[in-house]
Design a protein around this nucleic acid. Structure first.
Length: 551
RNA sequence: UUUCCUGUGGUGCAAUGGUAGCACGUCUGAUUUUGGUUCAGAAAAUCGUGGUUCGAAUCCAUGCAGGAAAACCA
């Protein structure tokens, strides 16, 4: 075994449990999304944690949909969640639904009523809130709290039978109205909702609340380690209380800090708002932090798993720099993506001493990081080329290693050229750059003896294909939109998407969907799902690091 | 104001009473037919105050700071 990296606090707990022989050393986790939105990178952290634990300790993981609120949930979300978890590379032991347990959970409720530990309350939600007191003042009991077991049983049965309208009654646990933990002040267990459920249809008109569904589902599945985020810490008391009073399998809850990332938002509510109000195209808009958005943007499952590994797991609030995510995808793509040439902001470069009408074929390897170059492709060369507008400067500063009057550069995979002249239009824009090439400097058998500092990419005008290229920037212009004064949407970056038409080398028409490639010196790109053979559309996954741009 | 959780370089995670380390980011330099990659190096941290101890990021006390909790959401 190589040097193990240190364990996170949850791994420590699991190892202690295994060492103590708890549950016979069995490890069963679960990933429990509510199907009311798409999964995002924060969920990926939880997925990697839960499935990773099972993988590491020879256990397994259930995918369980926490579908106890039919008014916000939908099978569209169920499908997307399953697709995303699979795409990330994980396999669940069982696909389960909290709604599968509605009969069992109902029976648990009856059991608690019979034990005198739950009662039907006719108060309105406002009344209940008022009677709960405040963190510093205890709550006050109402007349319903002392109903008899028989009356509670009858009323709860009638609630189930649909005798009462929404909101008329709730079932509450009888815990402790004076508890310093507000959630222990007789929490609601069941509420009436005459709503159609995506799985149980119209069978039920009462639905259990989170506190009376989640722990019970864990227990039914005999989950050993129920891992959730910090906001559920105060719920743990209820989690344990219900399990103890019911005398069912003792699942245990552990909480870790959710992921926050700079320049984005990570709440499903806010993401839904961006989608609904059209600030982004859809849940899979490449600017979204959703798994489907990242996938469409060109991120790979491996890069996301690596990211989740690197950010670690702890209990303190955190704000991860998005540059770490970018590092992870660059690290992978540098090793795997084929290099191609594309000119995003073109200006014409004429090789004045290259014969008109002549066409040469040059060779470019696919990936210099791979031994042998990973194969290669032919690149047509001719007298007129497109080059990048910012690879030329009329008055270049000292260390500018590209084109300018009298300066020389290498055309990648082709010749060294020297800038002799340039042409400007009436508005002062450079329209043509005139260069001469050095025939002896051809890539592969350069006998010119000339050394140049810079190399630029290019595309032959006569052979270029056009492509739509979508350049993405961060979605928000501030690091933490949620913590700013006012509406988070006020901080959307108006330049988060720039769509341009680029000239690309002809080989790119053979590009496969879903395959990443590097436009040399420009970044990593992937074909968008809307791309077709006669209308190429590329998404920029991430730029290359650019230490020149900083200066 | 009550209860709970958390305080380590700019950011994230380690060190579990014994030399504060790793990564991202930042900054140098070398190499380079991508101003990419790679390589070498640098700057940069234990919330404060007491205490226990030969020795404290770690244990105790206290203060401070940040977060969470009073949905018929999860």
């Amino acid at each position: 075994m190589s040097e193990e990296r240190s364990l996170n606090f949850i791994e420590e707990i699991v190892e202690e449990d295994i060492a103590a022989g708890k549950h016979g050393g069995r490890v069963l986790t679960r990933f429990p999304p509510e199907p009311n939105g798409y999964l995002h990178i924060g969920h990926a952290k939880s997925i990697c944690l839960n499935f990773g634990l099972a993988l590491k300790y020879n256990g397994s993981t259930n995918l369980r949909f926490d579908d106890t609120n039919p008014v916000t949930e939908d099978t569209e979300y169920v499908d997307s969640i399953k697709e995303d978890v699979k795409w990330l590379g994980f396999n669940w032991a069982s696909e389960l639904y909290a709604s599968d347990y509605f009969d069992l959970i109902y029976a648990f409720a009856v059991k608690l009523i019979e034990a005198g530990l739950a009662y039907v309350d006719d108060s309105t939600s406002e009344e209940i809130a008022a009677q709960k007191g405040t963190p510093t003042e205890p709550g006050t009991p109402n007349q319903y709290r002392s109903r008899s077991v028989e009356e509670n049983l009858r009323l709860f049965t009638e609630m189930k039978e649909g005798k009462y309208p929404d909101g008329a009654k709730v079932l509450r646990a009888k815990v402790d109205l004076a508890s310093p933990n507000m959630l222990m002040r007789d929490p609601v267990m069941y509420r009436i909702k005459h709503a159609h459920h995506h799985r149980t249809g119209d069978k039920w008109c009462i639905y259990p609340m989170y506190d009376f569904a989640h722990g019970q589902s864990d227990s039914i599945e005999q989950i050993t380690h129920s891992i959730c985020t910090l906001e559920f810490v105060p719920h743990r008391a209820m989690y344990d209380w219900f399990i103890e009073k019911l005398g069912i399998f003792p699942s245990k809850q552990y909480e870790f800090a959710r992921l926050n990332m700079t320049y984005t938002v990570m709440s499903k509510r806010k993401l839904l708002q961006l989608v609904k109000e059209g600030h982004v195209e859809d849940w899979d808009d490449p600017r979204m932090p959703t798994i489907s958005g990242l996938r469409r943007r060109g991120y790979t499952p491996g890069s996301i798993r690596e990211f989740c590994e690197r950010i670690g797991v702890a209990k303190r609030e955190n704000m991860i720099d998005v540059s770490l995510l970018e590092f992870c995808i660059r690290e992978e793509l540098n090793k795997t993506a084929w290099r191609r040439m594309a000119v995003l902001d073109p200006v014409k470069c004429i090789i004045t001493n290259f014969p008109e009408g002549l066409e040469e074929i040059h060779f470019g390897e696919n990936n210099p990081e791979v031994e042998g170059g990973d194969g290669g492709r032919d690149i047509p060369f001719s007298r007129e080329l497109w080059i990048e507008r910012d690879d030329f400067m009329e008055e270049p500063p000292k260390k500018f290693f590209r084109l300018g009057p009298g300066l020389m550069v290498r055309l990648k995979n082709a010749y060294i050229i020297k800038c002799d002249d340039f042409v400007k239009d009436a508005d002062g824009n450079v329209t043509e750059i005139h260069c001469s090439y050095i025939p002896e400097s051809r890539s592969g058998n350069d006998t010119s003896g000339i050394n140049v500092k810079g190399t630029i990419h290019w595309v032959s005008v006569a052979h270029a294909k056009t492509a739509e290229v979508r350049l993405y920037e961060r979605l928000f212009k501030v690091e933490d939109p949620s913590s700013e004064e006012g509406d988070f949407k006020d901080f959307l970056n108006p330049d988060s998407l720039q769509t341009i038409t680029a000239f690309v080398e002809p080989e790119l028409v053979n590009m496969e969907a879903g395959k990443p490639c590097q436009f040399m010196r420009k970044g990593y790109f992937t074909l968008d799902k809307t791309s077709t053979a006669d209308r190429l559309v590329f998404n920029r996954t991430v730029t290359l690091k650019d230490s020149w741009a900083k200066k």
